[in-house]
Simulated assay, not measured.
Amino acid sequence: MGYVTSLFARKMVAAAGDAVDGDGLLRSVGLDPQAAWDPRQMIPAAAYYDMLETMATQTDVTDLPVRVGASMRCDDYGALGLAWKAAVDLHGSLSRIARYARLWTSVVRYELRPDPRGLLFVLHRPGERRLGLRLSNETTLAATVSLARQVAPGPVTPLELRLQHPEPRSVAAHAAWFGCPLRFEAGCDALLFSPETMAQPNILGDDGISRYLISHLEAELSQITQDTPLIRQARASIAQSLSEGVPKMADVARSLGLSARSFHRRLSEQGKSFQGLTEETRRDLAEGLLRDDRHSLAEIAFLTGFSEQSSFTRAFKRWLGTTPASYRRDHLRR
């Protein structure tokens, strides 16, 4: 089961105000309406989506994600928000979200993906494209723009907003907030930023503070990313199979003594999908091999399940926003 921070649930209810049964909604996700807000308190993602869908029966929620996203402040995110502000530029801020988002949610992964017009900040949230999930995605992307505008020395306007779901009945609030073309039923949920916007220096960027905050975030991350035995075993099985190509879920399940159905269910209970776990394993394996100069790029491509080095290069740029050669050069220099 995946989890999200309770902060989002409380923000949604507060923004809706008297139009909804706020106390009842918060209790439905296991929160005490009278308790202090604690972003570290997590709630099940499915329960959060249920809550949003219940809100939709009590009031018009079309522009609610934009209003809540616009209300988010860097300080709401604790050390992660400080690290966002202390990054040198917006690219650095977004990279930190991609790296440390698991401190806030176990159901969302972020990716910086090169685009001919700039860089895409892509939100990956697996699951049925239900209303609650769609509203949550819109809120997250609206919040990203809010945080970017708080640290930039000048205006921040994305080149484009992309959302996989159909266009809601009104997009006036979306158009006013994002200030850019809106693409619904797109191939991903993402914001497209220009190179110039990504390179804008943050007004509070500070290398020294950044190093301190990053060490703190890494320590927090290490406490929550200890894989369960099942995940460790599945990763090992996937890694061992990659030199023969990307393995099938049924084959990995069989190697663990499980049926494909049981394996899928147990992964879902831990907020994982087989496709996502395979991608994570390939990415982590590639990073580790690139930090060692004993293997050529062609060998690393083969060992991570790619039939051609060019395919590996494209995937690596999608994962980390840089080429394997540049990644190796930067890390071997340290």
Rank of each mutant, 00 (worst) to 15 (best):
L123T: 04
T157C: 11
L267W: 08
V107Y: 04
S296T: 13
W37M: 11
M198H: 03
F274S: 07
H216D: 09
T278S: 13
L332Q: 14
R117H: 07
P116Q: 00
R129W: 10
S241P: 05
S146C: 12
D89G: 10
R125E: 15
S310K: 15
L256H: 09
T278P: 10
I214E: 13
I97M: 09
G305E: 04
L147P: 02
F178R: 02
A175F: 08
A260M: 15
L119R: 02
E299H: 14
P39E: 06
R99M: 07
A35F: 07
V29K: 03
G81I: 01
L64P: 01
E167P: 03
G288N: 13
S6W: 13
P247A: 02
I203Y: 07
T197R: 02
E185K: 14
S237G: 14
D38S: 12
S237R: 12
A173I: 04
H331V: 06
R149G: 03
S146N: 09
A253I: 06
L182H: 00
Q309K: 13
M42W: 09
E220P: 02
I209Y: 01
E308F: 13
L103I: 07
L7E: 10
E196A: 14
I238C: 14
E308W: 14
Y77H: 08
Q233W: 01
E128V: 04
T197W: 00
C188D: 13
V68M: 02
D18C: 00
F274M: 08
S28M: 10
G132I: 05
V13D: 12
L141Y: 10
L7Y: 09
M1A: 08
Q275I: 07
A325L: 07
E185Q: 15
T54F: 00
A16C: 06
M12G: 00
T57K: 03
A176W: 01
T322R: 14
L133K: 12
L31T: 00
A234E: 01
M249E: 09
P116Y: 02
